[in-house]
Design a protein around this nucleic acid. Sequence first.
DNA 1: TATTGTTATACTCTATAACTATA
DNA 2: TATAGTTATAGAGTATAACAATA
Lengths: 139, 139
Amino acid sequence: MKRSFNVVQADLARTLEPFGLRMITFTALILIVDNPDLSQTQLASALTVERSNLVTIVDDLEGKGWIVRNPAPNDRRSHALRATREGHRMCERAVKAAREHEERLLAALGKAERETFIAALQTIERAKREEQDGTDGKL
Amino acid sequence: MKRSFNVVQADLARTLEPFGLRMITFTALILIVDNPDLSQTQLASALTVERSNLVTIVDDLEGKGWIVRNPAPNDRRSHALRATREGHRMCERAVKAAREHEERLLAALGKAERETFIAALQTIERAKREEQDGTDGKL
DNA sequence: TATTGTTATACTCTATAACTATA
DNA sequence: TATAGTTATAGAGTATAACAATA
């Protein structure tokens, strides 16, 4: 079961590599695109990554010109993260590739099977998260 | 989907911790119990771990007295790994705990849902593995 | 006093090369 | 010459502590 996932994960990583994206920067980019003006602390929490480790992730995306660290209007400590136009384009392309990858992956499954599979994953995750900490993922 | 798995994986790790087992040493112990006189190269391949990195894993289990490195009868270079009586007991207890953990985890799912889920995981893994390399896992 | 982003650091995991003793 | 186990080492990923600027 664990192994199944490593195989899948490595495969997705290979799919994203040509885009200059790692799994974590890919997810980060999506979150920033979908939630403009996100702060780094919020993003770190959504990715379940330490704030300190998020720095290099944001550096990476900023260095490629796909996001910018704007000054937050109300709090001068914090950054309001935004995807650039290029970032939006990049995100769209990468998401498309990831979807195609997923399609290829789930091709071995029937349609009903596939829906059950996805639903089951989400159910398990939600149950576990709620059991562990009272906090619920907002994003 | 990736996140679902991290949550589950971290949870299983916490279940095994009181036994002094990590995910990888747990799997290694099971394989040794089920396949006596396995060589380290065979075990490394089954775990998809480099031979060099397997050393510390075997050291760990041997240091706890749960397995032994016997001299292989036919090849003086290689080790025949065997679980001790204590190792067998430990394995049994840990497997039981892991099963209970899995039960708790899948409790949120219906029975049919559960079976579909497990089958789907295996189908996906098999499809991917066969696509990538001609080799099939023997163990 | 607490929080945001940041740096430095340590610890684990993983990957590669080289060594030894055998084959 | 090739293989089994081992060592050393370098690279990622991740976790913790401390700091400056700001709240």
